[in-house]
Every structure is written in C-alpha cells, then in structure tokens.
C-alpha cells in the first residue's frame, strides 16, 4: 500500500484526539479501576518500533510455486475486477489491501469512512451481495466476484435513498463520521425487513458506534423511512 504510512499516521492522530476527548469510558459500579482499551493503548506509548512476531507465524522460506493446483496470486500487485455499485472497476492491488483502502484510495470513493480500522465501530460498512460487512476487515480479494455496494451507490439519479432522505429530515447526523455506516446498516435492514420495530433497528445498528450519541435520531429516521415504504424499492445498485 503505497500511501500506507500517510494514512496510518492520519488515523493515529485521529485516534489520539479521540482519546483526549473521550468522556465515555464505561464505568460500572465497582469498576472504577478499569481501563478502556483505548486508554490502555495510549498508556503503553505504543510505537511501531518493536514488533514481536508470533513464533508460529514468522516468515519462513517458502518455495515460489503454489500448493498442488491451488491458484496463487501476489504477493505483488494483482489486477482484479471489482463490481462496485453496479459498475465493473479494474484495479491493481496487493492481496493484503483492505476493501476500505481500495475504495477510498484506488477508486477515490471516500464516502466510506475508516475510523477504528479494527472492525469495532462499523463506520466503514459496505454491502457484499447485499449483506453489511466492515470494509476495513475485508480483504479486497474477498470482494472479487461479489456485488459491492457503498454509500455512493444508494442514491439513484441524484435522488437520495429514502433512508438518506429521512436522515436529513430527522437531523440524524451530528459530526457525520458514523453516518455513512449507519445509513448502510439501516438501508440493509429495510431491504430485508421493510417493517422493522424499534428493536430491529437497534439490533441492526448495534455495531455502529456514534461518538456524538445521535442514536435516537437514527432510529427515528429509519422508522420514518420504513413507514414511507422504502424497503425493497430502494435504488441501490449492484446488490
């Protein structure tokens, strides 16, 4: 990943800022001694200087040929065709590339946000064959041959997806960083269940973290979009 260093530095500083502003560490009765994972990491003064690669997985000298008949790609650049929002896009990528990186960097589609980069916030949610997944935890290679839908693919002909429209009308975004992921989770819910209950919406967004705490508006907007009957008739392309 050519710009890995740059991206990573940006994300690190973003995370550090989050730490400073974080007043939301979980406090349970009798749990005052406990640390959050973020605070813990900040406390270790973690740098990339020391790397303790696990014994079992140290790079070993490996022969170039593939194992008996199995197809081998990489480790260098591999040309692949991805189906993004109904269009075929050919990119050259290393097998280690995440789908989020390829979407944002190679394809310039920055609607998909990367926040934690560890599967823990769902900001980077896209659909693979209509199912929400974290693009930061998906190898782009795993998306080959599947329909990828990003937040850019929800609107059609300039018209917002009903869930997007409802988010606007119900003021369901504050800083907006979690919003694309929220929208993808909620639109997927209406696709498979056009008449969700509040609990269904809560479950569908249970992995989506919103630092601004705008959950009530997200729930309200999604239920409103459902009442308007957005479900199956969405304009989402490529799913």
């Amino acid at each position: 990943m050519s710009n890995d260093g740059q991206n990573h530095a940006d994300r690190r500083s973003l995370r550090e800022k989050d730490d400073d502003e974080d007043g939301s560490d979980v406090a349970l009765p009798g749990a005052s001694l406990r640390l959050s994972r973020r605070r813990f990491l900040a406390g270790t003064g973690l740098t990339a200087a020391t790397t303790a690669v696990l014994e079992a997985c140290k790079p070993a000298a490996v022969g170039g040929a593939g194992g008996k008949g199995a197809e081998v790609a990489g480790p260098g650049q591999v040309p692949v065709t991805l189906q993004v929002n109904g269009k075929e896009r050919t990119v050259s990528l290393e097998p280690r590339a995440t789908l989020a990186e390829v979407l944002r960097t190679d394809l310039g589609m920055t609607g998909t946000k990367v926040v934690c980069d560890r599967g823990a916030c769902s900001a980077c949610t896209v659909w693979l064959d209509g199912t929400p997944v974290c693009s930061c935890m998906t190898f782009a290679m795993d998306a080959v041959g599947r329909a990828i839908t990003t937040v850019e693919g929800l609107s059609s002909g300039g018209a917002l997806h009903p869930v997007q429209q409802a988010f606007v009308e119900h003021d369901a975004a504050q800083c907006g960083f979690c919003t694309p992921g929220m929208v993808m989770s909620c639109a997927a819910l209406l696709q498979r269940n056009p008449r969700p209950t509040l609990d269904d919406v809560r479950t569908a967004t249970s992995g989506n973290l919103c630092r601004c705490g705008t959950y009530p508006k997200v729930f309200e907007a999604t239920l409103a979009a459902a009442r308007r009957g957005s479900g199956g008739s969405s304009g989402a392309k490529g799913s």
Binding site: M1, D4, P59, G66, G67, G69, A70, E71, V72, A73, G74, P75, G76, V78, E94, P95, R96, F139, M141
Partner: peptide
C-alpha cells in the same frame, strides 16, 4: 502489514 500471497484452493 507484511505482503503475502493469496492462495485459492478448491
């Protein structure tokens, strides 16, 4: 992340 090859057995 180090670079690695992607093997697809069937």
């Amino acid at each position: 992340m180090n670079r690695f090859a992607w093997v697809t057995p069937s």
